[in-house]
Design a protein around this nucleic acid. Structure first.
Length: 823
RNA sequence: GCGGAUGUGGUGGAAUUGGUAGACACGCUAGUCUUAGGAACUAGUGCCGCAAGGCGUGAAGGUUCAAGUCCUUUCAUCCGCACCA
């Protein structure tokens, strides 16, 4: 008998599928379309790991299923290949990122194929190739033309030794990643002029659309948190002293009703008024020191700070717009420049944080409600606000908080000292990177014309090959090391001009690739809007990372291009599925440092094959449940495939003798499996789909225990089984399909058709409960009358015993389930 | 602190949404066979008990003929956000 050997059949069919274009999608097909994929990879030198295996197997199963169902199923493939690791490697070795990336890509292509993923390789994209980033630059220009791309000074981490910009992940415990010794200096912040995308313009509509999405629920919550909308009031306080008499200070608060309790003001250390008036303060030196100290701390470090610190700006006061009270102004780093206006009115009587600060620095505390509870902490909490009465608040005393809030806002608006306002946590998207290995920003700086966008017909602005990947030391990217590239002529006036040397954040590249996949080789446009009309939004998008930024940015781009009429839907991903991680056998996370990783390729090559690996990854738990790897689990899936294999081989070796006696049983088992597997794949519950197939295999083995079957029913059962298995174990299924006499690929065959008549049983087994406890089981005809069933139930010996001579008060029959007798 | 979720055998996990808890696997026990293997096959396996029976879904209450599922309280764990004004 032919043995199951994945090492033989897997490479064979991989080659066949490639050569026959089995998975090549016709993007202009008339068929109903199904478009799905997983977040693409950064091709690192290390190759794929178990997480990648899961990431791409999840959509692959669904896409294969849809293909069999007759959809034009498009599984695109691509690589997010710009990024820091290749650049860091280049700095270290001088080897071009282009070269190392290409090497990594070649290896990835092989590994993807070995996993048996049904990707359409004829449409592969690579974000670091000019034919892709040309259109990333085009996207930039569209945003620029609509005023959604702009330049602004912004602070960047800076290493004084390298004279180079650092990304967040290159700052480790406040020091540069390459200079983190005890004697090395802390990193500092340097102000650079950088490019931003105005995503805040879209914050509201993205937020509003979030609830309706068919996305993993917590991802939606994360999106909403990230946007962080809160409704409140901006109040204007006039300043007094230190020559600031004509200045005013705007603060944002969600609890304006506490304004009578303001006993001090707090500015973030970066607040512009600090730089302006701090030097005039009586304690100018303290102010200076405090600001310097705070600026050196990263935001993360600041948040870790348990004890609040601050200094007053002595001599500077603010005037409370509601009662004219003169209150001191402080600086403290518990106030963040990035939120609201970077300044707060502190109400220690009603706010926990302000209370803590006031306690420490001995500042006065005024309560503005009749109950001394904190009310302004967070926009979400709503202690029944109508139950609090205002106190110490002048004309508003006695009103409940809700009334007072409205009345105070009205008063401020009338006086011109405040207004209702909505703020967001999300800030504009900083896309400038002072890096080499990214898409150049298509902008030219002309001495005469200023900032000039590169005309669309001059795209791409190609990334030049350079000699030295070390940053030049002036805050510009290594592209500044290529003067002949930087030096150019102005597209407007033709005069001397310099190219922008910043490149774009990698997230820009991945914000629109779902559209590029539809026109991967089009050199006349970023994508064909007619194709987008047919294919967008993406039906199924899987990922196990990037729950916030990437998805938010992709939504921003899609909304923008939707308004331009280039995509049919404002949302990019109809369904977003966020899978959970596979854990190590001990329940901890896999990590490079622990070296406890499991190499998918090793598993395949050890003889278990990709099919068993794919099946086990899908079987171990529902994909969205974190579950530890169990090395004994893999063999169990191999065994399952092998048992199916045996059924087919034995069938092939029979002499054709027909046993029809158990056809009905065979068909019932088969259709039950068809139904279960179909609904479970649709619901991404692969674990129970596989369990149903295992049950079918077990059933078929049992049925044939004594005889060898060769009936048409038996053949239908085997063919259906193999077709059901095809999305999970595509190689073995293909081989078995051919063994069953088919000339064409199983993957473009069809999905087994369900015949519901076989789901109905002739008889059914009902449980009989007496006072809620099961006391007997009865077997009755499926179409038996309710009365007859009840009689049958009551006549059971054990039921009678538990009735103990009493008359049942009630007998309940639940259809197809049980009979419940109440005494 | 706020928000979201989850607690089921020795293990991963099932459970038609209120209807026989533990599907399917792993592991374990016993057995069969043998070109002795990390093979295949068969049977058993929630707990206590020889059995009858009893007990069982983190804990405690409640609703119901019937609760893993609904309600209340509570404990634990995980995740997201977090000095967001």
């Amino acid at each position: 008998m032919k043995k199951y050997n994945p090492k033989d059949i897997e490479p064979k069919w991989q080659k066949y599928w490639d050569e026959n274009g089995t998975y090549v999608a016709n993007l202009d097909s008339d068929k109903e379309k199904y478009y799905g994929f997983a977040m693409f990879n950064y091709p690192s030198g290390a190759g794929i790991h178990l997480g990648h295996a899961k990431n791409f197997t999840i959509p692959d199963i669904l896409m294969r299923f849809k293909r069999q169902q007759g959809y034009e199923s498009y599984s695109p493939v691509g690589f997010d290949s710009f990024g820091l690791p290749a650049e860091n490697y280049a700095i270290k070795t001088g080897q071009s990122p282009r070269v190392t990336t290409d090497e990594a890509l070649e290896s990835y292509r092989n590994q993807y194929r070995q996993m048996g993923w049904s990707m359409d390789w004829t449409k592969e994209i690579d974000t670091s190739k000019a034919d892709y980033y040309k259109w990333t630059q085009w996207c930039f220009l569209q945003l620029y033309n609509d005023g959604l791309a702009y330049q602004k000074e912004s602070l960047q981490w800076w290493c004084d030794i390298d004279k180079s910009v650092l990304s967040d992940e290159q700052v480790i415990a406040g020091k540069c990643w390459r200079h983190d010794g005890d004697d090395d200096p802390l990193v500092s912040k340097k102000s650079l002029r950088q490019w931003f995308f105005k995503i805040t313009d879209y914050a509201d509509e993205i937020l509003e659309a979030t609830d309706a999405l068919n996305w993993t629920p917590w991802v939606k919550t994360a999106q909403k948190n990230w946007i962080g909308r809160s409704e409140g009031t901006v109040a204007t306080f006039k300043l007094d002293g230190l020559g600031a008499d004509n200045e005013h200070l705007d603060v944002f608060t969600t609890a304006i009703e506490t304004i009578y309790g303001v006993t001090f003001m707090v500015l973030a250390p970066e607040h512009p008024l600090v730089a302006q008036y701090g030097q005039h303060a009586d304690n100018a030196q303290d102010v200076d020191e405090y600001v310097l100290h705070a600026m050196r701390k990263s935001d993360i470090d600041r948040e870790k700070e348990k004890v609040k610190t601050g200094v007053p700006i002595e001599g500077l006061f603010a005037i409370n717009p509601v009662n004219g009270e003169k209150i001191p102004v402080w600086i403290a780093d518990y106030v963040l420049m990035g939120y609201g206006s970077g300044a707060i009115m502190a109400v220690p009587g009603q706010d926990e944080r302000d209370y803590e600060f006031a306690q420490k620095y001995d500042l006065p505390i005024v309560y503005t409600t009749d109950k001394n509870e904190f009310v302004s902490y967070g926009p979400e909490i709503k202690p029944d606000r109508t139950k609090f009465a205002m106190a110490n608040s002048g004309e508003f005393n006695g009103q409940n908080l809700e009334e007072a809030r409205q009345n105070i806002v009205a008063k401020l608006e009338k006086d011109g000292t405040g207004e209702a306002k909505v703020t967001y946590k999300v800030r504009d998207w900083l896309i400038s990177r002072q890096r080499y290995w990214g898409a150049p920003i298509p902008i030219v700086h002309c001495d005469a014309c200023g900032v000039v966008p590169v005309p669309e017909d001059k795209l791409p602005v190609e990334l030049p090959e350079i000699e030295n990947y070390q940053p030049p030391g002036d805050g510009r990217s290594p592209l500044a090391n290529a003067p002949e590239w930087v030096q150019t002529s102005c597209p407007k006036c033709g005069g001397e001009a310099q190219r922008e040397t910043d490149t774009m954040d990698g997230y820009v590249c991945s914000s629109w690739y779902q559209m590029r996949y539809l026109s991967p080789h089009d050199d006349t446009q970023a994508w064909d809007p007619k194709r987008a009309e047919q294919w967008m939004p993406v039906k199924f998008y899987n990922g196990g990372d990037h729950a916030t930024a990437h998805l938010l940015y992709a939504r921003f781009f899609t909304r923008f291009f939707n308004k331009k009429g280039l995509v049919p839907d404002p949302e990019p991903f109809q369904q977003m599925y966020f899978h959970a991680k596979i854990l190590a056998e001990d329940g901890t996370f896999f990590s490079k440092s622990k070296g406890n990783g499991i190499d998918p390729l090793e598993i395949i090559e050890s003889g278990y094959g990709a099919d068993a690996l794919r099946t086990y990854i899908s079987f171990m738990a529902p994909p969205d449940v974190e579950s530890p790897w169990n090395s004994d689990g893999l063999p169990s899936c191999y065994r399952f495939i092998n048992r199916a294999w045996t059924l087919v081989q034995e069938f092939n070796e029979t002499d054709g003798s027909v046993e029809e006696g158990q056809d009905k049983e065979i068909l019932q088992a088969t259709h039950k499996a068809i139904e279960k597997v179909t609904t479970d794949i649709e619901a991404i519950k692969y674990n129970t789909a596989i369990a149903a197939m295992m049950t079918l295999v077990n059933d078929l083995h049992k049925i044939k225990e004594d005889d060898t079957y060769a009936s048409p029913a038996w053949q239908f059962a085997l063919e259906s089984l193999v077709q059901l298995m095809a999305p999970f174990a595509p190689h073995a299924a293909e081989e078995l399909w051919r063994d069953l006499g088919h000339g064409d690929s199983i993957h473009i065959s069809h999905w087994p058709e369900l015949d519901e008549q076989y789901l109905v049983q002739d008889t059914m087994t009902l449980a009989v409960q007496v006072n809620g406890k099961v006391r007997a089981e009865i077997e009755v005809a499926a179409d038996a009358e309710e009365e007859a069933i009840k009689q049958e139930a009551l006549s059971q010996e054990n039921v009678q015993a538990h009735l103990d001579g009493k008359e049942p008060k009630k007998v309940i029959y639940v259809q197809n389930r049980l009979v419940s007798v109440v005494v």
